[in-house]
């Protein structure tokens, strides 16, 4: 299970490989947390989120969109999930983190080169973030 950043001239391309569909969402959270976190802090805040999408790809975009929104509008810096449920067209999660001054880094989650597909025994995903 891993994520990595792929070279892109002006934006950030995120590639994820994981054993399960839900682990893809977990890794996307970890990648986002790496971008917005400035300093480690106690995970004193909780957010319950629910996002929907017509297919796996748009569900991943909606998940990351929610993280962008929470960071920008509430200063919420996510650190981990205590619950994560991935169903058909739906992700429900409880996020733990803190409210601080997240790096104002991700403007948006694009559909460019978007991918979420089975890969051998596991899954792979790709998403380009506008920064």
């Amino acid at each position: 299970m891993a994520y990595r950043w792929v070279e892109h001239t002006s934006e950030l391309e995120l590639e994820i490989e994981a054993a399960s569909e839900s682990a893809i969402f977990l890794e996307a959270l970890n990648a986002f947390a790496e971008l917005v976190a400035e300093e480690p802090s106690a995970d004193s805040e909780q957010r319950d989120v629910e996002v929907r999408g017509d297919d796996r790809e748009t569900l991943l975009v909606a998940w990351l969109d929610e993280l962008v929104f929470l960071a920008e509008s509430q200063g919420f810096v996510p650190e981990r999930t205590t619950e994560l449920e991935v169903g058909a067209g739906l992700v429900r999660a409880t996020l733990r983190g803190h409210v601080g001054e997240p790096r104002d880094f991700v403007k948006a989650v694009t559909l460019h080169r978007l991918l979420f597909a089975a890969n051998g025994d596991g899954w792979q995903a790709r998403v380009v973030l506008d920064v």
């Binding site: 892109h8 001239t9 002006s10 934006e11 694009t110 559909l111 460019h112 080169r113 380009v128 506008d130």
Partner: peptide, 9 residues
């Protein structure tokens, strides 16, 4: 111009 997403910048 350079690489963007969708349209090039």
């Amino acid at each position: 111009a350079h690489q963007g997403y969708g349209f090039p910048v």
